Simulated scan of single mutants.
Amino acid sequence: MIKVAAGLIAVAAGLFFILPETFLEAPPTTEAVPNVSASFEKLASLPGAVGESSGIAVLQQKGHYLTHNDAGNKPYLYKLDEQGELVETLKLKLKNVDWEDLAQDESGNIYIADTGNNNNRRRDLAVYKVNLKNPQQVEAIQYSYEDQKKFPPSKKDQNFDSEALFWHDDNLYIITKDRGQGETAKVYQVPAQAGNHKAKLIGSYKTGKEITGADISPDGNTVALLSEERIHLFRDISSPDAFFEGDYNEIEIKGTGQTEGIAFEDNSTVIITSEGGNLYRYKL
């Protein structure tokens, strides 16, 4: 028996050296899994005044942000630092029908998306342009969707709610939250100018999730959409008008809850808020 066992061990050892690939090769993978824990951090809890954060903008002063609450709350913008401390409250003379997101242009103007439309009945959709140096100086960019014919449409066609907005090159990009089938994000374009406009449908993408926030990187090469506990990245885009044709990647951020606001801090870092009351940073 001892000789037989020794022989078997010798054969196995020989096979190990003759066919190393068989024993040492790792199982094939189809996609690299990002190390979320190394890339993701909770910065702070949001102050009590911000109980339902729905949008976020990164201010020019390092480590400072702007956020707001959604429907049923006061028309206030809240300046925060990265420790979650409330720095300033800007009380605007506007209605907060259903504020859902913030965008920012190259001059530092803030765009407030009063675009929440849960039941798809609204005819008073608007984006408000605010100059932070004079918060009471407000321009109203009113719009309607060019392809909405009924208010509301049938249940399966209720895709005229939006919680996601970004600015680029004097245009606003509005991304819908598909309340009909929870599958397709439609993308509309509106001039970033006061007046009444038809929102032009320029594309769509089947994310399979309801989109709750959006932003574009400072270099214009990446668009990030947000859904609950997920980031949807479109990289190496040729134009914001067709960002949905870029290289797509979905990143899960477990434990963050009802994530609502997202904004780029730099070309490879995003800041995220949750309606549960937290402020996060993610390194892409």
Rank of each mutant, 00 (worst) to 15 (best):
T29K: 14
A242Y: 10
K74M: 13
E265Q: 14
N267A: 09
E265D: 11
T212H: 00
I237L: 10
V33I: 14
Y76S: 07
V36N: 05
N159H: 03
D169K: 15
E146V: 14
L172K: 01
L46R: 02
P135N: 06
R122M: 03
E163C: 04
N35L: 11
N267E: 07
S239N: 15
V11I: 08
T115W: 04
A26S: 15
I272E: 06
K95E: 10
E88D: 12
K129G: 03
F264E: 00
A12E: 09
S45Y: 13
N119W: 09
Q104M: 04
A32M: 11
G213V: 01
L233R: 08
A26R: 15
I211D: 01
N196R: 15
E21A: 15
R122L: 03
A32D: 14
I271C: 04
G7W: 13
Q189H: 08
R281C: 07
L24W: 14
R123H: 11
V127T: 00
K93I: 06
G255D: 13
G14Y: 04
T115F: 07
Q142Y: 09
S39Y: 07
F166T: 00
N221M: 14
V87S: 06
A57I: 01
N267M: 07
G55R: 02
A103L: 02
V138S: 04
T30K: 11
A242E: 12
D170P: 03
E228Q: 14
H68M: 13
L15Y: 10
R122K: 12
I141Y: 01
I271L: 09
N118E: 09
E252I: 11
L43C: 00
N134G: 10
K283G: 07
P27M: 12
N73V: 12
D266W: 12
K150E: 10
W167N: 00
I110P: 02
K155N: 12
E25Q: 14
G180W: 04
